[in-house]
Design a protein around this nucleic acid. Structure first.
Lengths: 114, 114
DNA sequence: AAGGAATGATACGGTTCCGTAACAATTGTC
DNA sequence: GACAATTGTTACGGAACCGTATCATTCCTT
């Protein structure tokens, strides 16, 4: 399916959503954090640190630190893999789901005005 | 005009564009920097530090520092206002225009796959 | 001309993130 | 069982950003 965004529409939508995020109180997730969060919630599990690092083309410590930060915000949780206890499985949380739901509503609402 | 984005479409589009930005080499602009850059290029001039701070609901040093950073990248330039030499006029640059044009193309291309 | 208002920049201390290198724990291999 | 490979984490020094307070410059009012 194609959304058929023109250049001007794309930039205006991005601007409006970014502006809403900047003006919003509460902590802003960094670009990497947001990408990790969306990956976890949009793609099928399991999600390991190694997989996420590969998908984002980023070092593993970047993932670990982002999971630390988002874990404090309870947007994400971690669990050891029982099949292979070297692995850490990144899991969704209720707060994380609500966060993204609210975020999607913001985009959806603003896209109506583009 | 309404783009009519569904929740799932909005999140997938955001994910895909963010992922492209993360994987891309070169410096990532922060959320605030990106918002400032888009404001400068989408809204009619003049743009002063004070106006930008008000629009983003952010302190003036945030704007000054963001302009410093983006100035080094030549995405933006500054000039004193001759009418009122207290003001600084934020101006567009060729590099900034190309940067956003390329960014819009990324969104446009990825939106076709949503 | 003098004092106050407005604008943007700077200083300061603190927090967060980064990249690289090293590390502990677990698994696989010989 | 010994040793290498894999996974995720931590350590370390450095860079970027933040919020608040302060400053220099310019304008305005009287």
């Amino acid at each position: 399916m194609s959304l058929g965004l023109t250049t001007a529409q794309a930039l205006k939508l991005w601007h409006d959503v970014n502006l809403a995020m900047v003006r919003d109180d509460g902590p802003d997730l960094s670009l990497r954090q947001m990408t990790i969060l969306l990956t976890i919630y949009l793609e099928a599990p399991p999600h390991t640190v190694r997989d996420l690092a590969a998908k984002l083309a980023v070092s593993k410590p970047v993932i670990t630190r982002a999971l630390d930060s988002m874990g404090k915000l309870e947007l994400v949780s971690r669990r050891r893999d029982d099949k292979d206890r070297r692995n850490v499985l990144v899991q969704r949380t209720v707060k994380g789901a609500l966060y993204l739901e609210r975020f999607a509503d913001t985009i959806g609402g603003l896209s109506k005005a583009v």
